[in-house]
């Protein structure tokens, strides 16, 4: 090998001081996944997932995560619009409060929900007195807890998209005779559609994985409030195979969401 060739091959090889930590970093994510895969009861997987406790949790998780996503779409998109397109005093503070669940420990969120909407909470108590409706420790509580922790993902994504959208398109639509709602429906929403879909996917994935706020606010009642993550936690004590099986389902779903999002991002860029 000549000196020149040696230099060339050396230059092509990335420096070991970067590669080594990178390998360790990758291992941090790969090793636990492999742990799940080797421990998985592949033969009896179908049976476990359709058995009582897991089937209940699957059903509950599907309903509550989809409901949380739907609620987020209904109230989160308008909230994002208000944050992106209007000016009012205290807007930055409001935005901060809306984004809080992104960094707050979910348990603290659940506790806050309990103090406000629990049977003795300042909203929960009059609500029960007037309507007899009790939010905590019910399916409604599961949906509320999931919405609380997941909606910020939708708001932050949609608000970003709205801020990036040239408002002159909406102006152009107005000069063509479209009222504000028509403009929102026919111009604004379609133009931010890729971000909206990304936001909804993220929201749904986050709602599906919600644990802390749910267990604090809605408890861990099998068939009523026990979602998949809660079922994993319980099964770890009693039925390891079930715990692994549920975990695999959640890994598969999360991975699918990430792959879908990647495609979305590529389309946008």
């Amino acid at each position: 090998m000549t000196a020149a060739e040696r230099t060339r091959s050396n230059r092509r090889r990335p420096p070991i001081t970067l590669v080594l930590p990178a390998v360790v970093g990758a291992a941090l994510f790969v090793v636990p996944l492999v742990g799940l895969l080797v421990r998985a009861p592949w033969a009896s997987l179908g049976e476990i997932l359709t058995a009582g406790i897991v089937a209940d949790a699957l059903r509950l998780s599907a309903i509550s995560s989809l409901a949380a996503t739907a609620v987020s779409a209904l109230i989160g998109v308008p909230l994002a619009w208000v944050l992106a397109r209007t000016e009012f005093p205290g807007k930055s503070l409001l935005r901060g409060v809306v984004m809080l669940p992104l960094v707050l420990p979910p348990v603290v969120g659940g506790a806050a929900l309990l103090f406000a909407l629990g049977r003795r909470g300042f909203v929960g108590e009059p609500l029960e007195r007037l309507t007899g409706f009790v939010m905590p420790f019910s399916m409604w509580g599961v949906i509320l807890a999931a919405t609380f922790v997941s909606m910020p993902f939708l708001v932050i994504t949609v608000e970003g998209a709205l801020s990036g959208l040239d408002p002159r398109y909406e102006g152009a639509a107005a000069t063509l005779g479209a009222g504000r709602l028509t403009v929102f429906r026919r111009v604004t929403l379609p133009m931010i559609a890729p971000s909206l879909v990304s936001g909804l996917l993220l929201t749904w994935a986050r709602a599906l994985g919600e644990f802390g706020a749910t267990v604090t606010f809605a408890g861990n009642l099998r068939g009523r409030t026990q979602t998949l993550p809660l079922a994993v936690f319980v099964a770890l004590e009693s039925d390891r195979d079930a715990a692994v099986a549920i975990s695999l389902v959640m890994v598969a779903v999360s991975l699918a969401v990430l792959v879908l999002l990647r495609d979305r991002w590529r389309q946008v860029s």
Partner: peptide, 25 residues
């Protein structure tokens, strides 16, 4: 009627839908 500087055609609609936009409602 306004013709904007960079035209501001709606990117998610085809030409026919762009022209027809103002005829809705």
């Amino acid at each position: 009627g306004v013709v904007f500087q960079d035209y501001l055609l709606f990117p998610h609609m085809n030409v026919a839908a762009n022209i027809a936009f103002g005829l809705g409602g």
